[in-house]
Design a protein around this nucleic acid. Structure first.
Lengths: 220, 220, 220, 220
DNA sequence: TATGAATGAGTATTCATTCAT
DNA sequence: GATGAATGAATACTCATTCAT
């Protein structure tokens, strides 16, 4: 996690210019917040700097004082979002660490908590994944974040190593992580634009996802 | 499937104008094929009609004769792609229908075959999912296709109803379908831009996905 | 001269796209005329395409239909001007060819006629020379035109080869050409923005320039 | 020359504000030197004050403390350059004054020495002439400098008044000056961007320019 | 029907100038 | 006096859409 934080800090520094304070800091925050809002509303690049300027009460010149170009601004928003997600994952893992005695108890709590973290970060996670498709720096960021998330999940499952029946517990933990993440991410991505996926379905799916993993870990 | 076909036909008719023949038909096909190629190369809207015109040997005027605007052309490509995917799902299900005696035997074959169908259709499936984010007609199309796919998967699993241990086999089948689809779709989407997901990992994941579902179905 | 004409035609074709007729031709002419006027008024690049559009009753899109970018438009104006100057030099030389029996008679007529040609073309000649400073294609054009002008002048003087006293008549003719051209060009360039160079001075200078060359040719 | 110096001083005072000392003086010098370098590199106005600020270690604010606007800075550079050229002309004339017994001996030395002075000052002389085209104050400066140079050249030639054959030696001297200056200036301006004007040609031209003037002065 | 030349609104980016500190 | 962050008007260029032929 500090690896990602470092990478992100580095990137933000390299796009912006220097550690800022006071009015400058506030102005930078307004840029980023406005850009983020617009990106969520309309898509990664489907906003104009004119809009950031007027909505965010920041002059166009100021934007170019902090960012080399529009792409840099977009990337900075995604870098921040990725950092936030990573931090929330950390917090979530820490909170879960002490609370469950057995794997069977842990798995549903984990699914529930992770789903909540992803739900909160879904809009920007989606934007990051979309942008990664065509933007190498964001693709690299996404991969770093994914590997980090994987290692964190692995560590969590490995605390219950003895309860995993198969001959290769690490592999099982890795598979479970991928399947859980994919399922949650997929449902959330549909969720945003779909009313057909009701709360009921969603809760059922989370429960069954937990049951499936538990059965998997228990199977020889 | 015929439900989707009907919907797609309807939509295509409403954007295009009339049943076409001969040269007109060929010209329409060139438009759609060229647009599809460009969309895959660069993204849903990141191509110009000028390019479709020159690459596809179609005049700009004739594009506007068949489609109300650029969005209609993009949508037509996605409608067709969705239809193609649905047909391949049908073919795949039909091929699998007779070949497996037990659920335990069926599941890994199903995962493998479905993954192959999705791999073939990944580029346009990805475009459809991205566009759905901000385009209601495509969002609706996606939902129809997802429901259709769900019902087809359900029917397949239900052939082995007796082998599903839980009290609600339908719910289990539904959950399994969502988890399988989400996992496969997610891996394929990463796959396009990621070399880190090697064939080995991918094959391992598919195998474990099968094992997980099998364990799930077997669990009480 | 046909060498320059060819080069210019080639260049114009490569910037514009095809032989045009009727309305297209007229529209292209308006672009070039408007750009030329603005360039003379304000300098090579100190005009906006918006101005060309509104003053010339041409849409901005039309300009980009004929020219790759603003630089291409500027260059096309200078290419045309260079071609015009070369043609007027030809015409002038042809008119002078038969009319003078001796070198002493020819020189002042030549100075007078050349000065008139340069006066007519001074504004665009000046623009071409200024642009050549920083624009390789225009620099190359300028050199081609200068060499062509030199060879034409040389041929004219050589008709009176026997009247040139020195041991190397060609060299003398070349030197005379350079000195005549430089002097006339310099006066004209000052002339445009200077009222201090009165007609009287100008006429005196031309007369003396003739006398100087005549004395030079006569000297051993 | 003192006339020009006065004019230039006046102008510099009117753009700058007060007689400066120490750090202020050094800072002003850095501004002017940096601006001059950039102007020579890229053209009269093709540099940014940001560049002057960073390259010259001068704050943007302090530029505006000394100069009303960017144009004033550009003009100050050209004023200084013009002053320098005038001083070098003076030095050159003084050095030549005693050394030649006859006009025939003087002329080639004069051409050679003047050509050297112009060569050294060519870049900024060119910038001054280009700017004069569209900037009245610089046009006025150029005219003052030209008249001054003319009067200095006249005085030099007049020392050999008896060797000029024609009925109006002053007029001949004036004509010779204009022709010499024009020819040298033209070759130097071409020289910067042209490799076709070789040293050989250039030396030949200077020699022939001398011969031409000598023949002219000797002719009745 | 079919064509493709013409249109012009829309947008990222630059940079002289100001002014709060 | 001195600084340099902030401002925003200005401008080249793109491309969906129209319409005369």
């Amino acid at each position: 996690m500090s690896a990602l934080a470092d990478a992100v800090e580095l990137s933000l520094e390299s796009m912006g210019r220097a550690p800022l304070q006071g009015r400058s800091k506030a102005s930078l925050e307004r840029m980023l917040a406005t850009a983020r809002t617009l990106m969520v509303e309309r898509g990664n690049e489907d906003f104009t700097l004119q809009e950031v300027s007027s909505r965010g009460k920041v002059s166009i010149g100021s934007i170019y004082l902090r960012f080399e170009n529009k792409d840099s601004l977009v990337r900075a928003v995604l870098y921040r979002a990725t950092q936030t997600l990573a931090q929330e994952e950390d917090t979530m893992q820490a909170a879960l660490a002490a609370s469950c005695a057995t794997l069977k108890e842990f798995v549903p709590h984990y699914v529930e908590a992770y789903s909540e973290v992803l739900r909160r970060n879904a809009p920007l996670l989606r934007l990051t994944m979309m942008r990664a498709e065509h933007d190498p720096p964001i693709s690299a960021l996404g991969k770093r974040a994914a590997l980090l998330a994987e290692s964190k999940a692995l560590a969590a499952f490995m605390r219950y190593r003895d309860e995993i029946a198969g001959p290769d517990p690490e592999m099982c933990a890795k598979a479970a992580h991928h399947i859980i993440f994919a399922t949650l991410a997929r449902q959330l991505s549909l969720g945003s634009s779909s009313e057909s996926v009701t709360n009921y379905d969603w809760n059922v799916l989370k429960r069954e996802l937990g049951r499936m993993c538990t059965a998997y870990f228990a199977a020889v």
